[in-house]
Design a binder for these strands. Structure first.
Length: 221
DNA sequence: GAGGAGATCGTCT
DNA sequence: GACGATCTCCTCT
């Protein structure tokens, strides 16, 4: 296995990336979670763009999934999951961290996908700044992993918060500063495992990762 | 490198 | 009043 080299690209390279359409999200969260692997999550800031490639996701099924926030029915917090597809559901957890999801399935049906890890692509200095880290000049993978390998970390790197982003349309780069896009990249191989950090329905194979990618969360990629 | 505990607060019971 | 879709730091090996 040869050493993984991050592909850091100039901002102009994202111009060919097509925003994902609403219908992409209008289906089973398991299909959305799998097909989101390799897509780009892009944040627009005054100082420029921040972008990462999605390398790890988890599906949360609206109905019959005890681990999903929508399991107990509609509440003020989880309302976005019950709304139309393609919108950001952001929640605050453990008194410390935000996590980003995207709603799936038609309006009225709950379901979502949790973004768990990104491979940094653009705006690495901004990500490091938001995380309170300083990048060394050689951009070692071990350093870059600290930026976006984990749901809380990637949310902080992109400055995702509930106040700022919950309910935001993730299919609309013209009207939104956070969206998803396809630049044609396709993962070679996808692995499916149980979800992380939950106690209910913990055995279901609903976590999707790009096999061998070093930016997947955990001790090793 | 593995394992454990604390941080810290919104949400629902 | 309990707990959680996490992270970091500390200790022990």
């Amino acid at each position: 296995m040869h050493k993984h080299t991050p592909k850091i690209r100039p901002e102009s390279a994202l111009k060919g990336a097509r925003p994902l359409l609403r219908r992409f999200f209008d289906r089973d969260p398991r299909a959305v979670a799998r097909e989101l692997l390799g897509k780009l999550l892009i944040r627009r800031e005054d100082a420029g763009l921040i972008a990462g490639r999605v390398v790890e996701t988890e599906a949360y099924i609206g109905v019959g999934d005890a681990a999903a926030h929508s399991a107990a029915g509609l509440t003020k917090r989880n309302a976005v999951l019950f709304g139309p597809p393609g919108y950001a559901y952001v929640y605050f957890i453990y008194g410390n961290h935000y996590c980003l999801n995207v709603s799936c399935l038609p309006d009225g049906e709950a379901g979502g996908v949790l973004f768990r890890a990104l491979e940094p692509v653009l705006g690495l200095q901004a990500m490091a700044s938001h995380r309170g880290l300083e990048l060394s000049a050689d951009l070692r993978v071990t350093q870059l992993r600290m930026l976006t390998s984990g749901p809380g970390r990637m949310a902080e790197a992109l400055k995702v918060t509930r106040d700022r982003d919950n309910g935001k349309d993730l299919t609309d780069p013209a009207g939104s500063d956070l969206w998803l896009a396809d630049d044609g990249f396709r993962p070679d191989r996808v692995s499916v495992t149980p979800r992380i950090g939950i106690t209910k329905a913990a055995d279901e194979p609903l976590r999707f990762v790009i096999a061998g990618n070093p930016f997947v969360s955990g001790k090793r990629g």
